[in-house]
Design a protein around this nucleic acid. Structure first.
Lengths: 182, 182
DNA sequence: CATATTTGGTCTGGTGAACAGACCAAATTG
DNA sequence: CAATTTGGTCTGTTCACCAGACCAAATATG
């Protein structure tokens, strides 16, 4: 935020957190970063967000130290910092709340602990190991509520396969007409 | 949200949750409800939010089933429903994130488990009891980072004393000149 | 290598939301 | 009963968001 009206004088750190991640789109962008989305165009393809706003949000997240920008290879890549990865519990609990307390509720995505294969509980803990794994130790896969018709961009398609969080997501289409047909 | 552009086609329930609690001010209002704030004027006094926007947010939260409105006694009171109380982990983890990952970080408020007196850890668990207490079993009190100068409205003053979450907060001033002086 | 396309943005104009503040009826206080 | 508080609604103005035009650099294609 930092723009317009600052509601940071609230004594509570909740307000501070909301200044960083409380704006429209911001948490969805961060969630996509957990999924391994790293590039501007992929974020746009998955979120249907205007270029100007995406650019502004990325700048805010860079300033806040939630993301870093890696310009080493051709097109820039946006990566979560440690502060960004610390947002995982927020995203997970909010997502679970949405699952339980909004209409219709079959999970669209399921998270499991890579080390033991167990699905996480509602608190984000691994029931087998008895603690909350770091997001980098998790695997996402589509759940029973998943409806592939809902979104059909390249990021959504890539996420139809189980994927290790925080590892880069391959959004290059698998060339349906050219390869494997010859 | 439901207004303007719906970003509910995201396959993820995170987007659904954000439609309800992702708008400006909404989570701060819900947090105040946990603190025991129940009335329109008290929310306004504590949050410095415009009347029109507070009114709109309360309507959204009522529609979403996060709050109920009790008109039984004179002025209306807004109370958290079960769905609303289920937002506690979201508020706690987001607040903790703000505490650790924004500048300056001494907790402004500390939460402890009423049953055993132990302070909660960063996950919202009671270290003594080994699980996360319901918010109704918690006590808030000012922490070392608390700066009473920052806000001096009647709600902030009432919260300078330890207070049981979800129980009504008494915001009537303690009449500094009239009582206890005679 | 020349050209076409994709990528990663910036910069408009138009529209909807937030803000400060006026206004008002009902409830409460004195 | 009069004054004040409460719980709103209704302005006009400012600000954020959106769609879409535009553009330079990087990449892909012939």
């Amino acid at each position: 935020m930092a723009l317009g009206t600052e509601y940071d004088r609230q004594g509570c750190y909740l307000a501070r957190a909301l200044e960083v991640v409380g704006e429209r789109w911001t948490l969805l962008i961060v969630r996509d970063c957990f999924y391994g989305v790293r590039r501007f165009s992929d974020l746009r393809a998955h979120l249907d967000i205007s270029r100007a706003v995406l650019s502004a949000r990325l700048d805010t997240l860079l300033d806040a130290g939630v993301l870093t920008r890696d310009d080493s290879g051709g097109h820039p890549e946006y990566l979560l910092t440690e502060a960004g990865r610390a947002l995982w519990p927020v995203i997970y609990t909010l997502s679970k709340w949405g699952e339980h307390h909004t209409s219709g509720s079959h999970p669209t995505r399921i998270f499991s602990h890579a080390a033991c294969g167990t699905d996480l509980d509602d608190h984000g803990d691994c029931p087998t190991c008895g603690h909350a794994p770091d997001p980098g130790e998790l695997i996402v896969r589509p759940g029973p509520g998943h409806n592939p018709m809902r979104r059909s961009d390249r990021v959504a398609r890539a996420l139809e396969q189980p994927h290790h969080l925080l590892t880069p997501l391959d959004t290059r289409e698998s060339a349906p007409e050219r390869a494997s047909r010859s």
